[in-house]
Write a protein that binds this DNA or RNA. Structure first.
Lengths: 250, 250
DNA sequence: TATGTGAAGTTGTCTAGATATCTAATGTGG
DNA sequence: CCACATTAGATATCTAGACAACTTCACATA
């Protein structure tokens, strides 16, 4: 009836923590207690124990098979590390020195796409920054960033060697979520020249919108990577729910 | 959870479908029925209605705020993030009909890349399948699949309209994890012809290795999408819901 | 030996409630 | 007009069950 102790933590969260520890200590494939087991052990109803397990399955930490039981996932995914990375962080992580070559940085009218992406009023102005991105001195991509006009202060910053995201973070804009679209196109002659390409090769284009904690967009970026010099690496769990029996008819 | 058994759909799935339609027709920010509303409307208990909403919230389609209600998400997100999806599922989610045109299907010697990807002994043979993938009848991509020779039985299957993954699942190969590399290149003249392109445009190339529960690779696929007709969506939480990193080819 | 049957155990789905906690809107007093 | 208390309504958590669907394994049978 009561049960909402002085403790601020929900019962299922307590069970979750307990299971996390079990996963950490155990080996992939090890069997976990059943829902009924957990319910009895913690003195809760099965539905409560179930919620704990489902949350972990959601995270990919455990795998559940109807009729068979719940097991430690083969490759427990630890979702702590941020996957949203700035170019500078990206390069640093790979042991490459990132630098930039500023092409343009000014306040200008927003394009229709930027207005929609950043949810700005009609005919707004944005801070537009265009840079060539280099890795160990080799041109890797051309990047076009658009920020709300409030960020105009960034124009006074060093955009060739400094990190744009570090400045934004200092100003209170912290990335919480990003949406990306990844596509490709053939380089224009101007891009071939800027990026030191040998011919009109392919560009890997990433269009990205970054949101803050309140789900407000504050950065729109289009980065066109030289495909021969850059590959995106992605690892996907089979199912978001962690249930390995999910249907994948092809 | 997701069984192909269309005869019996769970109640919460029915509610989910109904809500999906609502989201599709409504505008971002629009309020959705409350859990109690739904429960009454569909004649189910509140917990069942709740499950439907939670699933959609998980997908990022709706946003729920305790005390306030549930709303259509600002940007209904399409779930490609951190989810391994078959071509057919992918297309269905995008609302188009998927089909295939078989180019080749036979047993042949594995390439060096396939031997490494599938961890095969030297000079192994693989089942190689090449198909044109169509969306609503329009060529979208050319796909080259390589499977271990044990899967030779798949050659007897209907690869134009049948389900490769369904067959593999029956044979005990269930996808648990996938690694992808996403790059780009310019189409060859042969590809321009096969894919009904107007010129030598860009292709978005995804190379993918699928692993089973025991982390053994069992499928190597290279899919080259016509960039003008296909874009990859990705959403990343800063808390980390999927891993997407980039690498420069050496 | 091979096969099939059945029981036990597990997760999936669902019920019909309950209390707790939070949000947003309303109303009231200064 | 503003600040604060109230309140209706929403989600969050939880209960104590139920039956269905599925997996596994022991056991009996051909």
């Amino acid at each position: 009836m009561n049960n909402q102790d002085e403790s601020h933590e929900a019962r299922y969260q307590e069970i979750e923590r307990w299971l996390r520890d079990l996963v950490l200590r155990g080996a992939p494939g090890d069997a976990l207690p059943s829902e009924s087991d957990l319910a009895q052990r913690f003195g809760v109803s099965r539905m409560t124990a179930r919620q704990a397990m489902q949350n972990l399955a959601q995270e990919g930490l455990i795998s559940r098979r109807r009729g068979a039981g719940s097991y430690i996932a083969q490759r427990p995914l630890h979702r702590r590390e941020s996957t949203l990375m700035s170019f500078t962080d990206d390069m640093r992580r790979r042991g490459v020195v990132a630098s930039s070559q500023l092409l343009d940085a000014r306040l200008r009218s927003a394009t229709a796409g930027e207005i929609e992406a950043l949810r700005l009023p009609e005919a707004s102005r944005v801070v537009a920054i265009s840079r060539i991105r280099l890795a160990d001195g080799v041109p890797l991509a051309v990047e076009h960033v658009a920020l709300p006009a409030e960020c105009a202060g960034v124009l006074a910053e060093d955009l060739e060697s400094g990190s744009l995201h570090e400045y934004l973070h200092r100003r209170g804009w912290t990335p919480a979520l990003a949406r990306s679209w990844i596509g490709a196109r053939v380089a224009t002659p101007a891009e071939v020249r800027m990026l030191d390409m040998t011919s009109r090769g392919a560009l890997l284009v990433e269009r990205r919108i970054i949101y803050d904690q309140d789900h407000r967009p504050f950065e729109h970026t289009e980065t066109a990577y030289v495909a021969e010099r850059y590959v995106i690496d992605a690892t996907f769990a089979a199912t978001g729910s962690g249930t390995l029996t999910a249907a994948t008819p092809t």
